[in-house]
Each structure stands twice: as structure tokens, then as C-alpha cells.
Design a protein around this nucleic acid. Structure first.
Lengths: 298, 298
DNA sequence: ACAGAATCATGACTAAATATCATCAACTAA
DNA sequence: TTAGTTGATGATATTTAGTCATGATTCTGT
């Protein structure tokens, strides 16, 4: 096969139009070029593919049967090209359309689902895959390429990932509605004296800090229940004890007719972040995620 | 949709290779261009489609998720292009691959089928549609575009068609094996005195000439049978009379164990031709038809 | 039959797109 | 540190694609 040189899509478009209109002059008008350009383009195409496509008869271009067959091939190719252009426009408008998302449980129950809902509201054609896992596993999952981005509890240590802090909140206390502390405006660490604590059973920075402070301030708690974060609100609502968790999870999960949420002093900070591989930086979907963070309860 | 300018397939090939190899340097080597060319091509492609495809990180090009999706699109497009190149090569080698052929009955029973067989021997992938009809209808069928080419009895009058004479033969006489004339080497017009003639019932130049000559030479025939050319040989073989037909049909249809074929004087010439529309001139298949004419019996 | 309009091809020229060379800055790995 | 990568970029050359002006035919309508 002596090499066929088809770098120029224009010559194919010109051929197609010429085949359809039948004359070079008309083609030139349609494509806003000159007749001589059409004539040259055709001559060069014929030269390139090594065979005549039109016979010149009485100053007219008459399509040869070879042109018939080539025409349908070119139709398919140019159709394919148009499809690709549409895809490109979609890509440019909406970015890559598939994203595998992971989130830490504290954000996974409502915070991230809200984000996903908002993004899909904007463009329903995105494909999202979402799972919940501990922060360290989120990092591993994104690093390994099994997920594209993840919501984590900060800090994380990863050389390869980009980490964007998305919010910083102060822990709030969660108190059963009929509890003696429920009427206070602010809960302090001293209020925890002789209380039963309900805290997350997974590695949790704020819980660790809290326990440390309790020890430092010589406060004696009556006992503690460690539970999955998803169960904490329910435990509090049923009067097991009081809890200290991040306000996002608190507002997401709390049965507000059975518990109250109160500020806590001293403040324990939670930071949450979005992590993703470097090649996702600048991606439209990442941008959308960051632009659609739900309001954080005051 | 701000217009996307994809005239240059080269930039797509460069993108594809870059995506596959991962580095511009390697891509340049693979494609036998320079690294700067690759860099420029990518920059220009990104400019064209209006979004970045690779992020530049520590002097490396890292594919963004948008590039993933574009890559599969481009794979499809370039695959399509390769297919088209193959088609073009096939077209160049073998010409257009479908031909609707018509032929006059005298050639349609064996002469043209032999040609078709020879051509298909050379390239079995041709698609042939073949029918038999009178010469004038062959011309009309080709002129109207229902058929691409036709074998006709010359002369034909058509302004629009190209007519190539393919052979000229002299009529021969067809004589029953046990007939009194069967032993003569050459049959002359005088031999027809008091004979029963079997002649084609369709408009036939040679038959007309023969009847005219008979009248001019004051020869009285005992009678005549006009029949479809396909039946003439059989009629002669069964002793109905003697016939004068073109040697091609004669040798194609004659039951040579029951009839003899003899030269006839004076000579009546038959000319056969191939007709086709102008846009088929130069076509490979037309060329092949003309190159594979069967031997004409002496 | 003839004038005028329309067809495509082509030489000479120009503009635009592509690629190159040489070099730089950033990074990697010995 | 040093030698060897990487990709980007300014200046330049080359190749490609298009224009203009013109010519040779052919068609069309009077």
C-alpha cells in the first residue's frame, strides 16, 4: 500500500461538497473559498490517493463510480468527526464526565450527597460513583487510582495528591432533649464532669483531643460509649449520653426533635479537605464540587 | 458552541501518540518529528478545542481526565480513517466494486458470462448484476443509469454514452449435420436457393442485410422461420433449415454433434461494442472487461 | 450564428500553517 | 555537583493552502 496522505480534512470536506453540488464553482461559493482553490484541492486529493475521482468532460466535473464509494466512506468519517466535536464541546463545558468519589463517613451521609445532587442538578449527564470509607483509606484509594477524588479529614499526608481544604468547623455538643445540660447556651469542658460520653470509634482527631483535655483538666466522666459515627446521634437521642462531634455530621444526622446541638468551649477544630491526583487539577468537575459545597450550619 | 477547528489530523495523531507514550520526546521520536513540534502541536490543539488536556507538572505532561475521554474518541476516529485508507487502496487497485451489466442476447448466453467469470477470477470481491435485453434497451438502460455498462450490437446512436467497439466478426452459416450443404467448405448466397431459413426474430442487422441480398440476387427461398436467437441453434439441429448468425452465438449455442458451422460469402459483418456513461471511463472494471474478452472462434 | 455567461485549469503570487534549530529552565538520578 | 532528562519558546525556514488574473471550452438564449 503506497502511503496515502490524508492530513487535510479540508480536502475531504471539499470533495464531499463537490460531490454533492456537482460543480466546483458552487462548492467554492458554499465553502466561501475560490473556485481555483476547489480545483486545486481536488487535484491534490486525487494525487494523494493515486486515482482520479472525477472525469473532466466538456469543462464539467463528473463523478466516477470510485467517487460514489469514497463519498459514503467520507460521510461516515465526517459524521464521526462531528460526533467528536460534540463530545469536545461537552468536555469543555462539563469536563470529564465520570468521577469516582470517596468520602469520610462524617461527610458521606449527607454533606457529599448534597454536593453530588447539586452538581447533577447542573448537569445530569455526569456519571458518579460514590463510596464511604475512613480518611486514610480515601487517601489510599485516590493515590492508587481506584478513585478520582476524595473528601477527607485533614490533615492528610500524601506526596502525590493535591489537597484542597474545603472547610474548618468547630466541634459541637449533642445533648438529649430532656438532659439537664440541654438548657445551657454553651457547653464547656467542665460540664462533662460525671457525664457519659458518646464518641466515634474510628480514629478521630477531635475525640482524641477531647479525651486529652479531659485528662488535663482532671475531669472525671462517668463512662464512655464508642460507636460508629452513624450511630452516635441515635445513641444520644436515646439518652445514652452526650457527644461531641463535628457540626456537619451533627446537623446531617441529628433527630432534632430529640436532641439539641450546642456550641462547645474550648473549640476543637475539624478540617475537611478534597484530595485528588494532579491530573485532575483544573478539571471542571472538581471545580463544580468545590463551588457547590452545602452551607455549613452556624 | 464556539467553533472547533480540526482540519489537521496530524495534531490528533500526535495527541494519540503522546497519550500513549506519555512523553513528548518519545512521541517526537516515534513520529519522526522534533520535540518542539510535538509541544507546539499539543499547545495548538488545546488552544483549538478550548481546554487543557495535559497538565504540566515538574516538566512532565500528565494526561487530564478530559484527555482520557478524548483519547477514546480519537481512537475511534483514526480507526475509521484507517478503514477508509484501506478502502481507497482497494478502490485504486480494483476500481469501484459494483457494476450492473446488460448485454444483448447474442453475447449474453456465454460470451459475457465468460468475461464476468474471468474478471471475478482476478478479483472475487466485485459485485456484478447482469441481465440480457435487446441492444436498444441496453442503451436506454445505461443512459438512464439503471445499468452501468452494456454489451450492444453496433452501431448504436447515443450522444451521452461512450461506445467502445470490442470486436467485428463475419456471420457464419449453421447447417444440420446431415444436410446436403454440410459437406461444402464455404456456403455462398446462391446455396440458399430453395432452402428454409431460420433467422432471429428481433431486429437484426445481418438478417436484414441477408434478406436484402437474397432479394437483390433473385434467390428464392422455400420459406423462413423467425425465432428467438436462443432457439435458433436448436431449430437448425432439428433440421428445420439453415441459419446465418454471428459466430459467437453460433459457437456458444450450437450442439456441434448435430450441426456444422461454415463460413459464408459474401461476408456479413457484425460489430459488438461496450457502452457506458462517461463517468465510468478510466474505471478499472471497464478496463478489466475489455482485457478479458474471450477468444473469438476463427 | 453569435454574444455573453458559465464551466474548470493553471501560472504566479501570498498568506497561513507547520516544522526546525538553538536554547532555556526545571527536574532527576548518579 | 554534574550529566542527562524533560517540555517550552523565540526566531527562522519550509511546506501547504489559498487568491488573483487569465485562458480555453462549453452552454444558453436570442
Amino acid at each position: 500500500m503506497s502511503q496515502i496522505n490524508l492530513n487535510s480534512l479540508k480536502s475531504l470536506v471539499i470533495f464531499k461538497t463537490l460531490y454533492e453540488t456537482g460543480t466546483a464553482t458552487r462548492t467554492a461559493k458554499d465553502l466561501s473559498i475560490t473556485q481555483s482553490g476547489v480545483s486545486r484541492s481536488l487535484a491534490q486529493l486525487e494525487e494523494n490517493i493515486g486515482m482520479p475521482l472525477f472525469i473532466r468532460h466538456k469543462k464539467r466535473l463528473v463523478a466516477m463510480p470510485e467517487a460514489d464509494e469514497l463519498y459514503s466512506e467520507i460521510l461516515a468519517l465526517l459524521g464521526n468527526l462531528e460526533e467528536m466535536k460534540h463530545s469536545i464541546v461537552a468536555l469543555r463545558e462539563f469536563g470529564a464526565s465520570r468521577m469516582r468519589l470517596a468520602a469520610v463517613p462524617g461527610l458521606g451521609f449527607a454533606f457529599v450527597p448534597k454536593i453530588i445532587a447539586a452538581v447533577l442538578q447542573i448537569n445530569p449527564s455526569y456519571n458518579i460513583y460514590f463510596d464511604i470509607m475512613p480518611s486514610s483509606e480515601v487517601v489510599r484509594a485516590v493515590e492508587s487510582g481506584h478513585f478520582d477524588a476524595g473528601f477527607v479529614t485533614l490533615p492528610v499526608n500524601s506526596q502525590t495528591l493535591i489537597v484542597d481544604k474545603i472547610c474548618e468547623v468547630e466541634a459541637v455538643s449533642l445533648i438529649p432533649l430532656n438532659h439537664s445540660l440541654a438548657s445551657k447556651d454553651i457547653i464547656t469542658i467542665e460540664d462533662l464532669q460525671d457525664q457519659h460520653l458518646v464518641i466515634p470509634n474510628q480514629p478521630n482527631l477531635a475525640a482524641d483531643q477531647l479525651l486529652m483535655q479531659i485528662a488535663q483538666n482532671n475531669i472525671r466522666i462517668s463512662g464512655k460509649t464508642e460507636a460508629n459515627i452513624a450511630a452516635i446521634c441515635s445513641l444520644v437521642a436515646n439518652g445514652v449520653g452526650i457527644s461531641l462531634i463535628n457540626p456537619i455530621t451533627a446537623y446531617d444526622l441529628a433527630a432534632l426533635d430529640r436532641v439539641v446541638i450546642k456550641p462547645f468551649k474550648p473549640a476543637f477544630n475539624y478540617s475537611f479537605g478534597l484530595v485528588y491526583k494532579r491530573n485532575w487539577s483544573g478539571n471542571q468537575l472538581i471545580k463544580l464540587l468545590k463551588e457547590n459545597l452545602p452551607d455549613i450550619p452556624a
